[in-house]
């Protein structure tokens, strides 16, 4: 069994924190993992992506081959669409619906929504709004991870929750609880779709 995930977003949104939580859970579960990150210039508000590969067998390439990703997990709707050539036929797109507009020619919101909903398997969640509503402004990325959890077949919801506890453990119980709550909120939101 394998799961190839493209994480995407805008520099500074926190895609690497999502990768850390999934990666930690996968390591604990005894899975093999490779995670290609982008550091450097593009982190300054440009488009960023990370290739996260999980498997119960060996993994050769650090990069995901075109047409083979099982999931695009994105903190920004246009950034989800940017990596569509990597998605496999039955792959899922799980994305925040809140656009991040830091460029002058950002497309119309409606055209992005239309493109997204034309895909066979897509879940959009306004994680920014949920984060505001629940007074956890820094947890939008963990809410998105919660929304993706039911499609991450290689790991269980319990394994991911436990990983959040370990990853945020050093920041105290309150931070762990808030992030686990964020995860649960995202998980519940994806059920409604």
């Amino acid at each position: 069994m394998k799961q190839d995930i493209i994480l995407s977003g805008v520099g500074g949104q926190g895609i690497l924190s999502i990768a850390t939580i999934i990666g930690e859970a996968a390591t604990q579960a005894g899975l093999t993992l490779k995670q290609a990150e982008v550091h450097g210039m593009s982190q300054r508000g440009g488009d960023v992506q990370s290739n996260l590969r999980l498997s119960d067998g060996d993994i050769a390439s650090d990069l995901i081959t075109m047409g083979t990703a099982d999931m695009i997990l994105s903190l920004e709707p246009m950034e989800a669409l940017r990596y569509l050539p990597y998605l496999n036929k039955e792959g899922w797109v799980i994305t925040s619906s809140a656009p991040f507009k830091n460029i002058p020619d950002y497309p119309q919101d409606q055209s992005l929504a239309d493109e997204l909903h034309a895909l066979p398997h897509v879940v959009t969640v306004d994680v920014e709004a949920l984060a505001r509503e629940h007074a956890m402004p820094k947890c939008a990325n963990v809410i998105l991870l919660g929304a993706a959890a039911r499609y991450l077949n290689i790991l269980t919801v319990e394994q991911l929750r436990a990983s959040i506890a370990r990853v945020f453990g050093s920041k105290g119980d309150a931070v762990v609880e808030m992030n686990q709550r964020a995860f649960d909120i995202g998980h519940a939101a994806s059920e409604l779709k």
């Binding site: 300054r44 081959t65 669409l81």
Partner: peptide
Amino acid sequence: ATAMGHRPQRYFDVPKSVVGRPPALC
């Protein structure tokens, strides 16, 4: 893969509405 004769399948294209997002000064 292509050079080895196993060109990968491409199921979805990047929609035209997607534009570049260059990095910028903070």
